[in-house]
């Protein structure tokens, strides 16, 4: 086996590892949103607990990646593959943290029924953000630059909804001081969702860079 092919194999394995972590992160985001919508404390607690596993996996893969770069000293495209790997890992790890943040907010919100109205915006935002994460990862798997570029539009929509949620929540705080706590938490939640969407676009950018070698700003 030539050193070349062993390196290529290591890169392929790296991609598998990243996708494995991605599967956990997607699940965590989904579960955090579901437990928020249902105010399901047990579900939220599970998300928070499962983050430990994601963190471990993250460190493990990052280690592998660094070792790969240090020992093989890849050049040109190979270097790009390794570096994008690290970038995507980082985005995934951040997303997982935001999922945990949402779960924490859910823990605080549960206990009393939600009286704030904007709750139907948040699931919509969540759906979009989840779609973006999925698109970004699909683009990564298939090296699909087109798909990565298309994520722009979704990100704009998320930003737009975020602005609206913000306005509505602030209004509801003003109108009914009793909802301040709830509104504040929901504000956090929508901010986290918006951040998750941003990280998804980062993945999209990384894919574009990986395939074409150009840098491209999606947002």
């Amino acid at each position: 086996m030539s050193p070349r092919s062993s390196f290529e194999r290591a890169l392929a394995e790296l991609q598998q590892d990243i996708l494995r972590m991605a599967s956990l992160v997607e699940q965590a985001i989904y579960d955090s949103v579901q437990s928020l919508i249902r105010l399901d404390v047990a579900g939220a607690a599970q998300v928070i607990m499962s983050d430990e596993m994601i963190d471990e996996l993250y460190l493990e893969i990052e280690d592998k990646c660094v070792k790969l770069i240090a020992t093989q000293q890849p050049l040109a495209r190979d270097l790009r593959v390794a570096i994008t790997g690290i970038k995507i890992l980082l985005s995934l790890e951040r997303m997982a943290d935001h999922a945990v943040d949402i779960a924490r907010a859910t823990m605080c919100l549960s206990g009393q029924p939600l009286t704030v109205k904007c709750l139907d915006y948040i699931p919509r935002m969540a759906r979009l953000a989840q779609q973006m994460v999925k698109d970004g990862l699909d683009a990564y798997v298939n090296g699909d630059v087109q798909k990565a570029r298309e994520m722009c539009a979704l990100d704009d929509e998320v930003d737009y909804i975020f602005a609206r949620v913000f306005r509505e929540l602030v209004n509801s705080m003003r109108e009914d001081p009793r909802t301040v706590m709830q509104s504040a938490y929901l504000l956090y939640v929508s901010r986290y969702l918006e951040r998750i969407a941003d990280h998804a676009t980062n993945i999209g950018e990384a894919v574009i860079y990986l395939v074409t070698g150009e840098r491209w700003e999606l947002n």
Partner: peptide
């Protein structure tokens, strides 16, 4: 011909 994670991203399945 693809690896399963490239097709279905599910941790438990993989």
């Amino acid at each position: 011909g693809k690896k399963i994670l490239g097709v279905i991203r599910n941790y438990d399945l993989e």
